[in-house]
Amino acid sequence: MTHTPHRLEIENISIGYGDKIILRELSFQVPHGARVAVVGPNGAGKSTLFKALVGILPLQSGRILIHGEVLGAHKDCVAYIPQREDVDWRFPVTVSDVVMMGRYGQMGWLSRPSSHDKEVVQNSLARMGIADLASRSIGQLSGGQQQRAFLARAIAQEPHILLMDEPFTGVDVTTQEMTLNLLDHLQDRQVTTIVSTHDLNLAASRFDLALLINHQLIAFGTPQEVFKQENLQRAFGSSLLVMENGTMLVDECCPGDEEHEHHHTEAR
């Protein structure tokens, strides 16, 4: 751990593919070690934001600063849990190979893993409860186990900022619980975590900050400040249902999911 504050500043960024702008003029600042939930309707630009933060998608305008320096200046700073379809699951690698890839940035491309690297990999596997699966092929694991392998790799990277795109969707309860425990552990270590989720309850209860977006910034602040009726109404539009007792219900259909998912949060 370094003594520099793990600060992330987003200055007026616009991101898109070609002419199509997906996120417009977004600005916010994340203090070091904060847990941020990114919330918004489907297609609001959550994955797009993550891809820009990692540096896969170029910015059309604005800047991203990490520790006051432009994105890309710090090599191992940002870790990202990719979406399933980005990974080639048939590739001949074992679980420990995958986690070791997290060390590549620090060990250099030509050198062999040191005993410290191996130790970090072992600890990361153990933390995610998959040490016994270390020598299995990554393709043989269940979806939840695969996600834990990628989380283990992210810890092994020893990042300052960890990005997770929908880690709670479509995984087993154990994996959800382990992911949540990991968030707490990372906060102890002053790692900033930015997590997109559909689960407003989770966003309100387990995160320090919430970022509500729908192609632009709707609200950013503590969950109490952000999850207000007018904000949610602006983000979710007609899929937000306000009950008489003040309970708000967001009803939307996830693309690719067969059934409707209901997400709700208590309004204060």
Binding site: V54, K75, V78, D86, V87, D88, M101, Y104, W109
Partner: peptide, 21 residues
């Protein structure tokens, strides 16, 4: 042999390749 690790990463997980610059 020299590019074993970079080739492994770009084949298996292009996103990691991007984060590792």
């Amino acid at each position: 042999v020299l590019l074993f690790k970079p080739f492994l990463v770009i084949s298996f997980d292009p996103v990691l390749a991007a984060t590792l610059r």
